[in-house]
């Protein structure tokens, strides 16, 4: 048991059923093991940070959550992952699952559609036809992704022709347009300048009221700024999960975490 001093009174968030529960998760690519024995819960409306060096299995973990495994040849998922009470491995309609989970990949992919259509794609897939509603969604999502001011005069321009940082924000806007219950961010700031990163981080803090975020980041300080709890992944295992404040104030339970935080490896 962890000491109760930091969270003296359990909040509603702590007792509500978890949005995602992971038990004994293992991921293999053919014979190569990417992740093993991961148990964790992701609570509703928290920002769950995942830090760790390259090849720790962070991205594989995200792929298992929204079942993007079929794009990776030979990817094999063991154990159970439940999303909102359903084991994702038993869901046949994966598209429905994915439409409830937004993803931002580390390398941005602007679809070869106009900026407007990029953001409007997901609402349209949901069957939204009203131009007024779509306009509203596009503007709101682009604003939240801190992109609106840069592109509002050229919404019909091709999304794939934006700069890397702009495409990254377009991808975030697109993920938000799904109105997801769960947002997976995989090193989103890799292609974005520091000022924009800070603006997006502000948005993420606000979004916490509406949805749940899993933030995989290579920036330890970003996890510190945003995450409620942080998990440290190393070599395909989840080494520890600790409330962020405690982890960064010397309360890491595993010495390897402390080493990583202090930059001794990784």
């Amino acid at each position: 048991m962890v000491s109760p001093s930091l969270h003296a009174t359990p909040t509603a968030r702590d007792t509500a059923p978890a949005l995602v529960t992971v038990r004994g998760l293992g991921i293999r690519y053919g014979a190569k093991v990417a992740l093993q024995g991961v148990d964790l819960d992701i609570r509703r409306n928290e920002i769950f940070g995942i830090i760790g060096p390259a090849n720790a299995g962070k991205t594989s973990f995200l792929r298992a959550l929204n079942r993007m495994d079929e794009f990776v040849p030979h990817m094999q998922i063991d154990g159970t992952v439940t999303f909102a009470g359903r084991d994702v491995r038993t869901i046949r309609n994966l598209y429905a699952l994915r439409s409830h989970i937004g993803v931002v990949f580390p390398l941005p992919v602007g679809l070869p559609l106009s900026i407007y259509d990029n953001v409007a794609l997901s609402p349209r897939l949901r069957g939204e036809r009203s131009k007024a509603v779509l306009d509203e969604i596009v503007e709101r999502c682009l604003r939240r992704a801190a992109l609106w001011d840069e592109v509002k005069d050229r919404l019909q321009g091709l999304g794939s022709l934006l700069s890397g940082g702009q495409q990254q924000r377009l991808t975030i806007a697109r993920a938000l347009s799904q109105e997801p219950e769960l947002l997976l961010l995989d090193e989103f700031s890799i292609a974005v300048d520091p000022v924009t990163t800070m603006r997006i981080e502000e948005v993420l803090k606000e979004l916490r009221r509406e949805l749940t975020i899993v933030l995989v980041t290579n920036l330890v300080q970003q996890a510190r700024r945003l995450a409620d709890r942080t998990a440290f992944f190393l070599g395909g295992r989840c080494v520890e999960i600790t409330p962020t404040e405690r982890m960064f104030s010397g309360g890491a339970t595993d010495p390897r975490t402390a080493d990583y935080l202090e930059g001794r490896f990784g």
Binding site: M68, Y95, H100, G102, F105, V109, L111, S122, R174
Partner: peptide
């Protein structure tokens, strides 16, 4: 392939990906 992956991550079915992208 990244286009397909991105569009499916949005929840598009394979057919919707084919048709729209």
């Amino acid at each position: 392939e990244s286009y397909r992956e991105a569009a499916e991550a949005l929840g598009a079915t394979r057919w919707q990906v084919v048709r729209k992208v």
